[in-house]
Design a protein around this nucleic acid. Structure first.
Lengths: 93, 93
DNA sequence: GTATAATGTCCTCGAACGACGACATGAGGG
DNA sequence: CCCTCATGTCGTCGTTCGAGGACATTATAC
């Protein structure tokens, strides 16, 4: 999943939290933040602090990655390796 | 590249900014933030606001993605597809 | 030697953050 | 019915953010 806005990230976090069977309170305590803060972040709070967000992602085991922009293609083909890998590993997300 | 800390992100941003031939002042103006803020972020400022960081990533065309955690392996092998893909697309930058 | 640009640091200021407690709602279980 | 849990919202408080200006340093060019 691609993250372009705080809301995107919030949705991703929520999905993952639920799929892990955690409540907001639990995750908040585990990460060391206020429950209310987590609520706001899952709703796409734009002013959330970077470090805390990264701590959440780490707590729910959600790797965040960045790379060069999609150079359109590697050779000349249009195969989307990311998509292939993603589905292959069963990222139902 | 994997982002686990604000410093990781800062380094990635700096690398990309330079590879685009932009100065801090230029990028800051383009993103709509103070130059000083950008300096801090590139140094790994932990309290940086999420939305602004995302705006920077967008400005330098640096997609951010997240997915399910590496389930260790797809079949039973240990091949690291992420690494393979990454190098294949020449993310050396 | 003198400009010019890029980067990093220090300062103040108003605004927003995150923590915490309290309360309301909705879903289930006793 | 009552009770518990999960979630969302409101208000208060101390802390920190981001903007903007000023100055130092280094490197490049005139």
């Amino acid at each position: 999943m691609f993250i372009r806005t705080p809301a995107d990230l919030g949705a991703a976090i929520r999905d993952r939290r639920k799929s892990l069977g955690l409540s907001q309170s639990e995750l908040a305590k585990r990460v060391g933040v206020g429950r209310q803060w987590l609520v706001a972040v899952e709703h796409g709070k734009p002013g959330a602090e970077l470090a805390l967000v990264l701590r959440v992602l780490d707590a729910i085991n959600m790797p965040l990655m960045t790379g060069a922009p999609p150079p359109a293609a590697i050779g000349a083909s249009d195969i989307n390796l990311d998509a292939i890998i993603a589905s292959a590993r069963g990222d139902a997300s």
